[in-house]
Design a protein around this nucleic acid. Structure first.
Lengths: 227, 227, 227, 227
DNA sequence: GATGAATGAGTTTTCATTCAT
DNA sequence: GATGAATGAAAACTCATTCAT
């Protein structure tokens, strides 16, 4: 049971064997169904009825596990956020240690089908809209949260330093981080608005051209880091 | 007898010029109230009750003037879109004719307080979420619509040509347009998510650094076109 | 003006020349539109909006001329009732004086296209449904009102007497009148329910077979009175 | 662990037999309340509020059980139709097998207090008005539906044959069926319009006089079949 | 007299939440 | 823990009526 436990404890510490498992499954089922409903219908129309229809679970379950629909949405946002960051973390670990490799990993992650897909983008968009009124959501749904921003800032500092710019590297790196994050955000919005016409490859090339212009010694259009 | 009869039944002189005006005012009032409600509460919570509370008009008026709440939202989106484009058009006309001046005008417009403000950004965000299900909205609410995209594309072509890049200017310009629009979009999203911390000047500087990197002969960080 | 006046005085005594005419036209227009709306939509759905749409007149007109929508419906019922009886009266006058000719005239009238048509039957049906709650309607909408019932009763008495039934002629005539009126009513209901399949000729033949069975010396299936 | 888990997630023993019953009772209660409201107020005024007031049930229940008010009315019509036919079927089974006994059973059924009562007649009348716009209702609410029409047709054929009419028995029977059904319909309409004055006995005598005239060997005014 | 924009009470419907089973 | 029928507040919408023009 030990290793399984490990698998689960992130959310619900298991101390009773079976019912906890079922409970966990139902919890997860509701969260997945909520993601689906948000994606299919938008926040405004993702009603309890629509969620349980997708979860094939009973009506009372939502209040049993989450207390309220609002809470379920908050937990769903946490879940999505954790999923996003966990995957990003993996990507960063797998990538080489050089700044250009790390940045490249972030780009490829953010534009990958795992992250930039119809469901995911819709859900993020809807959850962000809800942040405004569900302040509790705020801390969870901001992808470019401080951690990522810091990581990027330091990567860009390192890259900029190789170009021997004596002055204003700090401010420059801030601007580049800001622009880079905005660029990635903008790609998501574009994907949302032009789902049919969106070309993943064009987006990638466009980002790498942006990086190439800034750091001609480190990036090229193939998205391969230059050594 | 005949002509009097005729006169009375057909040619009743309209004594309601004011009511025409009043009708228009109420229509506008509802649209403004909808913008406000969308901004204050989000699409999901912008109920008819909340809208009329802000408009200080009667319940029935929404259906009188727009037929349904959905229609009111659509008309509000059209209105917002038209306002955005009309203002942009003005900015482009007032700016000098050189590509760098035109691009600069677009940046300054998009980051101006008239465009990038709490209400406006919220409303755009909410309306975009609705586009997904209101296909009619799509054509109206896509800011970066084809016209703007085309204008930018040709401006960037002109700028790129001055750098004497023989090959792939077309593709390069496409990428730059794509990136530039995404960057501007991303600024809006950042504004939405970090309304308190958002620094208009940082955003502007970040965009102009992006432009300066691409077109060092035409832009600098002050946002003043170089001649 | 005199003879035209005569034409109108039945409903609105004309004493001002022109406006009265216009007023009259509008009144009539509203009544006709109400008949149409009742026929098209039923009592429950014949709203003021639907009526004025058909009348191509202004909203306020209904209250100007009739005080309320309910009143308009009542006046419409009166109008329909008067039209029905006026036409019946004409038919009776045109027909020969014998009882069989008079009865035949009533049958032919009630099954004629002028009386038994889609609009008319719908309207009667709807108005009768409303009688229950609009007691004022009651006196106007009962076609088989006492007058007709009396006329028929005496016609049947005369006919029955020729068969030399000594006893119970009175009761017999009452029963026949009752049955005859119910039969005619039933024809209307059948028309309402089976508008497509309804065969005017079958209905007529069926009624005349009923009359022939009762009064074999006076009626046959051709619907021609026997002399 | 496995089987317990299995047990809990899939085979939760239903401990809600009563709620099944309660659900059904509420459904029925709403239908009965709808019948009552239609009878009391007419189709046009039988609002959801009036229906739930009579049912003493909650507002949401109509949509829980029927999806919409329209649906509730349709189900009410079906219910009324089924009740009518079920009772008629019983009456036909209880009656003797001879044609005259069967016809007599139909008459007595249709004029019985169970069928021809204030509520029932009002409801039928209202529902028929609705048929026009609710085509789905048509098949359910036509009392004189094909089955009854066929039964009557064959009963009348049998009766007519005993009178040795060589020719046109078929057409004759059709006419008699048509007239008989119209007569019964007419009785209902008369009841609706003259509820106070309506004499059940007179109606019955009138129908039997009609039958006696057609089939003097089989019917008399007492409504007792002749052998 | 005539108009049609405006009103708000009333209608149907939706929905998160509760709770008996 | 799990279910889904039940609830009623609040949503969108309809409509007869009013009234300034």
């Amino acid at each position: 049971m030990g290793h399984k436990d490990h698998h689960q404890t992130k959310f619900i510490p298991s101390n009773a064997p079976t019912s906890r498992t079922a409970k966990f499954k139902n919890r997860q089922g509701l969260i997945e169904a909520t993601l689906q409903a948000l994606s299919d219908l938008g926040y405004a129309n993702a009603s309890v009825s629509e969620i349980i229809k997708r979860a094939r679970l009973s009506r009372g379950m939502i209040h049993l596990h989450f207390g309220s629909k609002d809470n379920l949405v908050i937990e769903t946002a946490k879940h999505a956020s954790e999923r996003y960051h966990a995957f990003l973390e993996t990507c960063l670990k797998c990538a080489g240690p050089s700044p250009q490799e790390q940045v490249e990993a972030i780009v490829k992650h953010d534009l990958s089908e795992d992250v930039l897909n119809a469901t995911s983008v819709r859900v993020w968009y809807e959850l962000r809209g809800a942040i405004y009124f569900q302040k509790e959501l705020a801390s969870y749904s901001d992808t470019r949260d401080e951690r990522l921003r810091n990581v990027l800032f330091h990567l860009f500092i390192q890259l900029l330093e190789t170009y021997g710019l004596k002055e204003a590297t700090q401010e420059n790196a801030e601007d580049v981080t800001f622009a880079f994050l905005a660029l990635m955000e903008g790609m998501w919005t574009d994907y949302l608005l032009h789902q049919n016409g969106f070309q993943r490859e064009n987006a990638k090339r466009s980002v790498f051209r942006f990086l190439q212009t800034l750091f001609p010694d480190h990036f090229d259009l193939t998205g391969a880091k230059l050594t």
